[in-house]
Design a protein around this nucleic acid. Sequence first.
DNA 1: TGATTTATATACCGGACGGTACTAATATTA
DNA 2: TAATATTAGTACCGTCCGGTATATAAATCA
Lengths: 207, 207
Amino acid sequence: MVQKKSVRRPRGRPRAYDPDQALAQATAAFWDAGYSGASLEDLTAATGMNKPSLYGAFGNKHALYMTVLEQYRAMGREAMREALSYELPLADALRRVYARAIEIYTAGGRGARGCFLIGTAATESVLDPKIRRVFADGLHELDAQLEARFTHAMERGELQSGIGAGDLARVACGIMNSLALRARAGDSRRVLEATAEAGVRLLCSLG
Amino acid sequence: MVQKKSVRRPRGRPRAYDPDQALAQATAAFWDAGYSGASLEDLTAATGMNKPSLYGAFGNKHALYMTVLEQYRAMGREAMREALSYELPLADALRRVYARAIEIYTAGGRGARGCFLIGTAATESVLDPKIRRVFADGLHELDAQLEARFTHAMERGELQSGIGAGDLARVACGIMNSLALRARAGDSRRVLEATAEAGVRLLCSLG
DNA sequence: TGATTTATATACCGGACGGTACTAATATTA
DNA sequence: TAATATTAGTACCGTCCGGTATATAAATCA
């Protein structure tokens, strides 16, 4: 009988940190201060790790950031996939999407921080092509998720619009971008929700 | 007869730089790299000034950034005021607004940089309340300009919508935010223009 | 128990950071 | 021309930056 690997400890001194938790705390540090604004000291303080351990686990600052960035994208993709129901009417599906986005954007101990990509990756995107690529991919992936849902609604006869699904998706994505920015600017949850609802009604021709 | 002050030179050694031009070049440096990402060396290289002159003229890095930020806001306000015609039909006025925004967002030597506020101030807004205030004011001022135009269109009977002028304005502002982000992400001008046009048609119920 | 393996912890590296004292240069004023 | 005023330019300040060498601690394996 083979012993479970997760129980059998590896050979050397055990880690004093939980990798997932450390990554989450590094995410928070970057989210607050941005990539350039978060110092290695901020990151070690946030994770509770010392610098050599941080390097051993995640590589240098840029590599750590890229890891965090990809993890955020995966979280966002999954959150959207869950929220963007194909069962509910289009308007309700969009409402769920925006509600979930507002949840994510207004979380955070030091006040709302918006979208991680918009708050940190956008800034670096001009001078850092790798970050720009991930940032653009993140936007376009959301576009694609939304476009598929709009296409579905059109095919089902749930929505007739003179505007193509792709363009509708980019506008719907734009509403979300705006929620992220307004959250980071400190707008109240009520304003965010009203903006989202107005967007839903426009997009679904419920004006 | 009084001699013009602008001709009469002040007492000491004359400046080797043009203050307006220096400020524009500092703007470019911050726009590319963000506030935290732009070093004082970047700023002196961009402006051609040495550090003591830079300090004498504009104060420390934060003060210089705040000056640049306010100047950008003034430029943006004026650009919107010019573009947001009250004579043209609402849809055409919005088209002018977005066209002008795309012009500003895609300018820049090292590639498109989007909106200065979104690309640089948003990132700092979580940890720097003064920057957050200016960022939020910038968003809300654009909201107000757009809301006034929507209100005008409604009063004139040019637009009937179940959505209030304020909410329409925030959505219209969101489209612009999205153009800024997409520009910084590297999206083509064609995509930006298509997104803007879709936004116009939704906002003006031309779907 | 002793060797080996892995991680932690301390202390340090060269360099870049934001910021400034000091000197030299260039103008006006008397 | 001498005195004064204002700027430019150089050189430097202490600190923090990202990153790493080295030593020590804590586990498994034989």
